[in-house]
């Protein structure tokens, strides 16, 4: 068990995974783009605008996934005080923020031709915006609070509040009337996307996941080297 938590063991392991990710990412991105731009049909009512979905939905999912992971890591870090955890969430937060912003921007681009507006203050959109502020607060608090104990406490509180916001994001379209449509892909229930559109969506999700893994591993290794250079704190 101790062996697997050893930073240099993890460092070597991340190097191997990184090579694997590098090998797979470009073919999968190309396949994803071909599928979503050329092979997938247009929607019966939205036409070609539906193709924005293949970027918008994976980006939104990954931003939620990143924040969920981040909060869990923060809580584990708070309870069990595992030092190397802070490296993980420092590498994870910028990825989540980037995808959150991508989701909001592509959502605006999608909203204009379909709904007739760039932005609406409905529950789903507003809670996504709040998540963005949580990300920003989180990043600022580990960047600018020098004392590591204080900063990790503040990070934990922010991530905890954000975790509740995640639940609000997920159920916002069910609890309240919103302009945003309800979820189309349900793991438990019925999925309302036709299979010819679900395949490009899944490939794009995989491509986005690989991209996040790539950035995450690179960032994680850089942070590890930085800590080693400074003398482990």
């Amino acid at each position: 068990m101790i062996k697997y938590l050893n930073p240099s063991y993890i460092f070597n392991l991340t190097g191997k995974i990184l090579n694997l990710v590098k090998f797979f990412i470009i073919p999968i991105v190309i396949v994803g783009i071909i599928f979503s731009l050329f092979l997938s049909p247009e929607d019966y009512i939205q036409g070609d605008a539906v193709r924005i979905m293949y970027v918008h939905v994976p980006a939104a999912w990954i931003s939620l996934l990143c924040f969920g992971t981040l909060s869990l890591l923060c809580i584990i870090n708070f309870i069990f005080k595992i030092k190397s955890m802070s490296l993980v969430f420092k590498s994870l937060a910028p990825i989540g923020l980037t995808f959150n912003i991508i989701a909001i921007l592509t959502g605006a681009l999608w909203g204009q031709p379909t709904w007739g507006t760039w932005w609406a203050w409905d529950a789903r959109l507003t809670s996504m915006l709040i998540l963005m502020f949580f990300y920003i607060a989180f990043i600022l608090s580990y960047k600018f609070i020098k004392d590591p104990i204080n900063s990790s406490k503040i990070c934990t509180i922010i991530s905890l509040a954000g975790l509740i916001n995640l639940v609000v994001i997920k159920y916002s379209v069910i609890w309240w009337s919103t302009l945003h449509q309800p979820a189309s892909v349900n793991l438990a229930g019925e999925t309302t996307i036709h299979i010819s559109m679900l395949i490009p969506l899944s490939v794009m999700l995989l491509a986005f996941l690989l991209y996040s893994a790539l950035i995450f591993l690179m960032k994680y290794r850089i942070e590890t080297i930085r800590v080693k250079k400074k003398g482990l704190k």
Partner: peptide
């Protein structure tokens, strides 16, 4: 004063419709 369209969660190709 303003009309917004709300679309539902169904996505499918036109031929299927």
């Amino acid at each position: 004063k303003r009309i917004l369209a709300k679309h539902d969660e169904n996505y499918m190709p036109p031929e299927l419709k």
